[in-house]
Structure formats: structure tokens, C-alpha cells
Design a protein around this nucleic acid. Structure first.
Lengths: 181, 181
DNA sequence: GGTTGCATGTAAATGGTTACATGATTGT
DNA sequence: ACAATCATGTAACCATTTACATGCAACC
């Protein structure tokens, strides 16, 4: 499942420029489970164009580069639907936050507190954004379901951090309690 | 935060071979938020050895290649602790499952059901393994905290899928309900 | 007789990010 | 004055995965 398929997915929801596709991965409905940079999106769009899976229409703009608005062709839609039937790869997650935190005993407790507090704030902010998005935009059933799952997971993560923060701090501050029992 | 640091992290919990380090990412305490393959672990270990951050002791084995058991040196431990103080990168997650599911309306409902059921089974299995792991092994405070967070998140994900599965299936089976309201 | 587990390693290919190049407009 | 937003694109670089190479033992 490469960037080309991801672009087709964004375009299946309506025409868009490369710039707008990037935003879909940065802030939009895909932001919490996929990402792509300009350096991969623009070449992907050119390749898709060459393969006839997307159509490109240049919209002239004053004092800016032409905005290239891409849309799915019939072949592109078929290709995308077929790609969706493939068995999904395992999720890949890499969290330096969790890695670092799993060695909390090697860090000063104040740093552990800071890391957790930063992360809680980040989750709360993301949750807020996703709720706004849910309230504002009408979303197809699948996307709404996935957003709901993202919300459920982020809420669980934030709650866990809030509920267990102080316990961890106590444990890393007084390691004797662990050894004593 | 590259594979070298990840290896140092595993080794900070005790000496291990490359093969055992791989297992830590496959089944062990890091499996739900990081991964690494042999092709990256073995070169990383050689580089760390050359830099003096790990020591290597070959354990002869009959009819098998020597098992190379690595352990942290004092410099390795310092280096690792310093690396932990860096501000963690943003988590990167890529989930083809969520991507595909967000286009559920393009798939046959039976396939949507299958995808969700597979995923629920996967979460339940992972949760079981993590609970066993928690019951069996004594873990440092940080690692226990992180595992608890993994459990909380996986449970929330599995529950969401269980609770909302049928609603999504109804929506993708009768799209008229969405349009009608 | 085939797969899985143990055990290490290399080379090629992949797939992607980062940095660069360009440039006007709007906001602080 | 400086940063951010809009807008596209390329090239160099990077890290990692995949496939290959080797080989025995145990299990089914």
C-alpha cells in the first residue's frame, strides 16, 4: 500500500491538488494513521497521470504556479477498488515516546512528568480537532467509523496517562518500594 | 532514534544475541510500538561493537553458528541514557487496515465484516499475550507503565470494533438510510 | 517430507524523507 | 523584518526491508 494508492484514496473523495492531498495526511481524515510528504506525493501523482489513473487539469493562478487539480478516472477508480480488496499489511507503529518511557527509571522524574504531560496535551488537542471535524463535515460511513475508532483509542490513551502518571512518578522517585515488596 | 539505540535499549535489560533482540521486537516488550529486522539488527550490532558501546562474547554451539552474546559497556550505557534525554520524534503509524476500512462503502459488506472480525481476533490475541507477559515476568516501572498503556489502547480498540461493527455493516448495506435523513 | 525454530550475515532493492530551488502574499 | 501559507517539483540521501546464502534439529 504505497503513496500512489493513498493518493487515489484521497482523490476518491473528490478532486484535489498535490498540496491539498498533503493536508489530508497532515490534518485531515488520514492524519492519525498515515502520512506522506511532498517528495513522495508529487512523483506519485505524475506516475498516476502517466498510467491514466488520474486526470489533471491546470488551474491558472495569478503570481503563483498553476494549481494542478487531479481527479480519478474510471480506470483509476477501478484500480483503487481492486487495491482495497487486498489483505492489509500489519500495522506498523513506531513510537519513540513509548520507547523512551519504557526506560523511565533512567530519567529524572521531572523529565518523565514532562514527557507524559506533553503527550496528554497532544492527545487532548488531537481529540478536540477530531471532534470538530466530526461535527462540521459530513463523512461517509467508513471514514466516520475509522474516525470514531481513532477517537476511542486516543481517549483511552489520554485517560491511561492521566490515571497512571502519578503512580509511575512515585515508582521512579522511590525505587525502594519495588525492591522492598 | 535508529536501530542502534533500540538495540542498546534491549541490551540495557540484559545481555542478548541478535536473534534474541529480534524476538524482543517481534513478541517481546517492544513489539507493539517498534520493529526491526535481522537486516538492520546485525549491522547495527557490528557498528556498536566497533564503537565500543557493546561488548561481544562468542558462545560456541554444536552444529550451529556461534551465538554472539552482546552486552552494554559502560560507555554504551552512558550513550544510551543520553539518547533517552532527546525530545522524542512524533509517533508514526501506518495502518492499511484503517485506510481500507475508511472506504468501507466501496467494499462488499461481507468483506468489511471479515476485516473487522480478523482485527478483533488479533487484538484479543495480543491482549492475551500481553497479560500473560505481565503476570509472568517482573518488569521495571517504565516498561510496566508502557505495557499497561498498550493494553488500555488495545482494549479500547477491540471494544470499539465490537460495539460498532454491526452499525457500520448496517450503514454500508443500506446506504439509503444515510441519504434519507 | 515440509515447516518451524535456531543462528548469523550480506546485497540489492525499496520506499520514503529532507533539503533545496523558486516566489508571491498575508499576517505578526 | 520574519514567519507562515500557498504552490510545485527534483535530487540526494537514508534507513529499512526483502531476498538470498547456509545449515542442522525437532516436530508434525
Amino acid at each position: 500500500m504505497d503513496v500512489k494508492i493513498l493518493c487515489l484514496g484521497v482523490l476518491s473523495r473528490g478532486e484535489a491538488s498535490g498540496y491539498e492531498i498533503k493536508k489530508a495526511f497532515e490534518e485531515g481524515p488520514f492524519s492519525h494513521f498515515h502520512q506522506a510528504s511532498f517528495g513522495s506525493i508529487y512523483p506519485a501523482l505524475n506516475a498516476l497521470s502517466a498510467e491514466g489513473l488520474v486526470a489533471c487539469r491546470a488551474q491558472a493562478q495569478e503570481k503563483r504556479p498553476d494549481k494542478k487539480i487531479y481527479s480519478l478516472t474510471a480506470e483509476g477508480r477501478d484500480f483503487f477498488c481492486q487495491a482495497l480488496t487486498a489483505q492489509p499489511d500489519h500495522d506498523r507503529m513506531r513510537s519513540d515516546f513509548l520507547f523512551i518511557l519504557s526506560f523511565a527509571q533512567f530519567l529524572p522524574p521531572s523529565r518523565v512528568a514532562e514527557l507524559i504531560d506533553q503527550r496528554i496535551a497532544w492527545y487532548r488537542e488531537s481529540i478536540g480537532r477530531m471532534e470538530d471535524c466530526a461535527a462540521t463535515m459530513s463523512t461517509p460511513a467508513g471514514a466516520a467509523f475509522v474516525r470514531g475508532m481513532g477517537l476511542a483509542v486516543y481517549r483511552a490513551a489520554a485517560e491511561y496517562l492521566e490515571d497512571n502518571r502519578d503512580r509511575l512518578l512515585a515508582e521512579v522517585s522511590e525505587p525502594s518500594t519495588l525492591v522492598a515488596e
